[in-house]
C-alpha cells in the first residue's frame, strides 16, 4: 500500500521471474560489454542513470557544502516572512539567495534543506537496501544451495515475514523498538536511533524478494559445469556457492537493487509522515514534505518541491532498473 514496498515485489515478479534465464549471458563471451552497449543505446535509461548519479553526487556533496556554508539548512530568516509567517514576495519567496524560496514559519532556505534532505533520505534508503540485499542474498544462497530442511525453514521464514503487515509493523514497532535500540543497544537517542530503526526494519521486512530470486538463480546454476568442476576439486559446498556462484549473481542482484531502492525512498517519506523517521531540524525529504503539506494552498512551491524531488528519484530508479534489466536480458522484455 502506502510505502510502496509492496510494489517492489510486483516489479520484480513481472520483470524478472525466478526462471528468468540469466545463464545465457553468463555463457556469452563478453556479456558485460554487450549489456553496456545495449544500455548506452537506451536513451531513457541513460537519462535516468544520469539523474540517479546526479542525486548521489548531490547527496555526497551536501555535507561539505553545508560545512563550507554554501548550503544553509539551519539558519532562520524571519525578516523574509510576512505577518502570517509566509515568505514575502510570493512564489514561496524565491530570490537569488533562495532559489527555491524560504520555509514558511522560520524562513530557512528551502533549497539547502531539500538538498541536505536528499543526503539523509538516500543514506537511509541506501543502507536499508543494502541490508535487505545482503540478507536476501545470504538467505537465498544458503537456501538454494543447501536444499532439504534448511531450504524449507528459510522458505517458512519468508512466508512468515511476508505475513506481517509491513507499514503497520513499521509504525507499531517504533516506540517499542526505539526503546530497545537506545536502552539495550545503547545507540544515542534521537536521530541515530531513529535512522537505525528505519534502516533495520525496512531491511528486515524487505529481503524476501531478493532471497527468492537468488534462490531461483542458485538452483539453476547448481547444475552447471563450473560448479561441478569446483565440487570435484574438493571445494566446500558453502564456500563454493559464495565464491563461485555469487559472482554470477551480480546481474539479478543489481536489478533487484535498483528496484528496491526507490521503494525505500518512498517508504522513508511515508515513515516521516507518520513521525517515525529522523526528526527536523535534520532534514529528510520525507520530514520536509510532512511540514509542507499544510502549505498546499498558500505556498505551492514549498508544498511541491520535496514531493517532486522524491518522485523524480523514484521514477528514475525504476526506469534505471528497467534499463539495466533490459540490457542484461534483451530477450525477455521489449
Amino acid at each position: 500500500m502506502t510505502t510502496g514496498t509492496e510494489l517492489e515485489s510486483h516489479f520484480i515478479a513481472t520483470d524478472l521471474g525466478p526462471e528468468a534465464p540469466e545463464d545465457r549471458k553468463v555463457a556469452s563471451k563478453s556479456p558485460t560489454q554487450l549489456a553496456l552497449a545495449r544500455f548506452r543505446k537506451d536513451k531513457l535509461s541513460m537519462v535516468s542513470f544520469v539523474i540517479v548519479v546526479f542525486y548521489f553526487l548531490a547527496a555526497l556533496a551536501a555535507p561539505f557544502l553545508v560545512q563550507a556554508g554554501v548550503l544553509n539548512p539551519f539558519t532562520t530568516h524571519d525578516e523574509l516572512l510576512d505577518a502570517n509567517t509566509l515568505p514575502l514576495g510570493g512564489f514561496g519567496g524565491i530570490s537569488w539567495d533562495h532559489p527555491l524560496g524560504v520555509e514558511p514559519g522560520v524562513g530557512r532556505d528551502v533549497l539547502s534543506r531539500v538538498w541536505y534532505g536528499i543526503t539523509f533520505s538516500l543514506a537511509i534508503s541506501l543502507s536499508a537496501t543494502l541490508l535487505a540485499v545482503i540478507i536476501g542474498v545470504v538467505a537465498g544462497i544458503v537456501s538454494g544451495a543447501s536444499g532439504g530442511w534448511i531450504d524449507a525453514i528459510i522458505g517458512r521464514i519468508i512466508d512468515l515475514t511476508l505475513a506481517f503487515p509491513q507499514t503497520l509493523m513499521l509504525l507499531a514497532l517504533s516506540s517499542v523498538a526505539l526503546a530497545f535500540i537506545t536502552e539495550v543497544l545503547g545507540v544515542p537517542a534521537g536521530d541515530p536511533a531513529r535512522a537505525l530503526y528505519v534502516i533495520v526494519v525496512l531491511g528486515l521486512f524487505g529481503w524476501t524478494g531478493v532471497a527468492r530470486i537468488v534462490r531461483g538463480q542458485v538452483l539453476s546454476l547448481r547444475e552447471r559445469e563450473f560448479v561441478h568442476a569446483a565440487q570435484l576439486l574438493g571445494a566446500s559446498k558453502m564456500r563454493l556457492y559464495f565464491r563461485e556462484i555469487l559472482p554470477n549473481l551480480w546481474a539479478p542482484i543489481l536489478v533487484t537493487f535498483t528496484l528496491i531502492m526507490p521503494a525505500f525512498v518512498s517508504a522513508e517519506a511515508a515513515l516521516a509522515y507518520l513521525g517515525v523517521s529522523i526528526h527536523p531540524p535534520t532534514p529528510t525529504l520525507g520530514n520536509i514534505l510532512r511540514d509542507s503539506l499544510s502549505y498546499a494552498q498558500n505556498d505551492f512551491v514549498y508544498f511541491f518541491s520535496p514531493a517532486f524531488l522524491i518522485a523524480v528519484i523514484v521514477v528514475s530508479f525504476n526506469l534505471l532498473g528497467d534499463g539495466v534489466r533490459d540490457a542484461l536480458d534483451p530477450k525477455g522484455h521489449q
Binding site: 510494489l7 526507490p262 511515508a270 520525507g286 514534505l289 522524491i310 518522485a311
Partner: peptide, 9 residues
C-alpha cells in the same frame, strides 16, 4: 509518476 509521488502528498 503517480506511483512515485508519495501517497500522502
Amino acid at each position: 509518476v503517480a506511483y512515485a509521488f508519495p501517497t500522502f502528498f
